[in-house]
Amino acid sequence: WKVTVKGVEYTFDNPEEAKKFAEELAKKKGGQIHYKDGEFQVH
């Protein structure tokens, strides 16, 4: 499971962890999460 933040990729074994990480980042940066092709992208 991948989380991509401004072109930087983070990989997680667990989808729950990936989702949590993406949500935290989106909150911090005031961005939005897009889920696409099996990965979370924070913009």
Rank of each mutant, 00 (worst) to 15 (best):
W1R: 07
W1S: 08
W1H: 09
K2P: 05
K2L: 09
V3D: 02
V3S: 01
V3C: 04
V3W: 00
T4E: 03
T4W: 06
T4C: 11
T4S: 09
V5L: 10
V5W: 15
V5D: 14
V5Q: 02
V5F: 15
K6N: 15
K6R: 11
G7A: 02
G7Y: 02
G7T: 02
V8T: 08
V8M: 13
V8F: 12
V8S: 05
V8I: 12
E9H: 06
E9Q: 10
E9D: 06
E9Y: 05
T11W: 15
T11Y: 15
T11N: 12
F12N: 00
F12L: 00
D13A: 09
D13L: 06
N14G: 08
N14R: 05
N14T: 13
P15G: 08
P15S: 08
P15V: 14
P15K: 15
P15R: 15
E16W: 14
E16G: 09
E16Y: 12
E16V: 11
E17A: 11
E17H: 07
E17M: 07
E17W: 02
E17L: 08
E17P: 01
A18D: 00
A18K: 01
A18Q: 01
A18M: 04
A18R: 01
A18H: 01
K19L: 14
K19Y: 14
K20C: 14
K20M: 10
K20P: 00
F21N: 00
F21T: 01
F21S: 00
F21E: 00
F21V: 01
A22N: 01
A22I: 08
A22S: 03
A22C: 09
A22T: 04
E23V: 09
E23K: 05
E23M: 09
E23H: 05
E23P: 00
E23N: 06
E23S: 03
E23I: 10
E24V: 08
E24S: 10
E24I: 08
L25V: 13
L25Q: 12
L25H: 07
A26C: 13
A26Q: 07
A26T: 09
K27W: 06
K27T: 11
K27H: 10
K27A: 13
K27N: 10
K28N: 12
K28H: 10
K28F: 07
K28W: 06
K28Y: 08
K28S: 13
K29M: 15
K29E: 15
K29R: 11
K29P: 09
K29Y: 15
K29V: 15
K29C: 15
G30K: 08
G30F: 06
G31A: 12
G31I: 08
G31H: 07
Q32S: 13
Q32T: 14
Q32R: 09
Q32K: 13
I33P: 05
I33A: 03
I33N: 06
I33E: 05
I33M: 05
H34M: 08
Y35A: 07
Y35T: 06
K36T: 10
K36D: 09
K36R: 10
K36H: 13
D37K: 02
D37E: 09
D37Q: 02
D37H: 02
G38Y: 10
G38H: 13
G38S: 06
G38P: 05
G38N: 12
E39T: 07
E39L: 02
E39M: 07
E39R: 04
E39A: 07
E39D: 06
F40G: 04
F40D: 04
F40S: 03
F40T: 03
Q41L: 11
Q41W: 09
Q41Y: 09
V42F: 04
V42T: 04
H43W: 05
H43K: 12
H43F: 09
H43P: 05
